[in-house]
């Protein structure tokens, strides 16, 4: 793997974002809207609920973290879709770029795009609602890392679909996270789910990540078991997603669909 070659693809997306105010605005706008919306919902619960006294913090933190996951996955898909839409994808495939270098470039660029969206939204929540996700402390880094891995995993799987089936798979890119959100236990504990669904939810890293986020905010303690589970599960899913990505390339070459991917 050559970092310089991989960075060329990152540079391409940096140029694209730098030159387009609507793109920068779009990256910041949606996370901010999410935070404001959920901030008011949380405030309402605070005034009308005695379930626990940190309900606003819990819901808003969940919204911020979920948005981080959403952005990292969608950013991944967007970077690939940009290449298809601009009819540039063949130029990439006929260059010496390796698949591993494409994955590295998309993964790094997606992180930058996601941070552009997350940081302003997280900062806005502090003066507006008096809530800071930074209260999660150092474990926040592990939670974000875990969410990012899962976002990249989903991004890889959807991108593999785009490679294999072409732009018609685009709709799945947008819907992918909505499919998985109910099982992710983002805004509620795993116990809320029906008994038979709970093992499925616990098989996803998301349930462990958001469980731990609530644990930290409500109990003011850290259960590293949840974090380790989440990271462990993430590596299993990520390995699976990478192998699917390679397989879809190989299959697209067999079927000849790479040649027509931009059409």
């Amino acid at each position: 793997m050559n970092i310089k070659r991989s960075s060329s693809l990152m540079l391409r997306h940096f140029y694209l974002i730098r030159s387009s105010f609507p793109r920068i605005f779009d990256l910041i706008y949606w996370p901010t809207v999410q935070i404001i919306l959920w901030g008011f919902v949380s405030k309402f619960f605070t005034m009308h609920s005695d379930y626990f006294n940190n309900v606003a913090g819990v819901i808003l933190s969940a919204a911020i973290l979920y948005d981080f996951l959403f952005r990292s996955s969608i950013s991944y898909n967007m970077l690939f879709l940009e290449e298809i839409w601009s009819r540039n994808i063949i130029n990439l495939f006929v260059s010496p770029l390796k698949i591993s270098e494409i994955i590295l470039a998309l993964t790094s660029s997606a992180l930058i795009r996601t941070m552009i969206g997350l940081v302003p939204a997280a900062l806005i929540a502090i003066p507006l609602f008096g809530i800071s996700i930074f209260e999660l402390g150092l474990p926040l880094i592990l939670l974000l890392f875990s969410l990012y891995l899962f976002g990249v995993t989903l991004g890889l799987l959807v991108t593999a679909g785009l490679v294999r089936f072409g732009p018609s798979f685009e709709n799945v890119a947008w819907a992918s996270l909505f499919f998985i959100a109910p099982l992710g236990c983002i805004y509620y504990p795993v116990e809320i789910l029906p008994n038979w669904v709970q093992p499925i939810a616990l098989g996803l890293p998301l349930a462990h990540i958001f469980e731990e986020m609530r644990n930290i905010l409500v109990n003011q303690s850290v259960d590293f078991k949840n974090i380790y589970y989440a990271i462990g599960l993430n590596f299993i899913y990520l390995t699976f997603a990478i192998s699917i990505f390679y397989k879809s390339f190989s299959s697209a070459k067999q079927k000849g669909t790479l040649v027509n991917i931009g059409e």
């Binding site: 391409r12 694209l16 030159s19 601009s86 540039n88 130029n91």
Partner: peptide, 8 residues
């Protein structure tokens, strides 16, 4: 096959 349109 085109080059990215938004880039110079």
């Amino acid at each position: 096959v085109e080059l990215p349109k938004k880039l110079t």
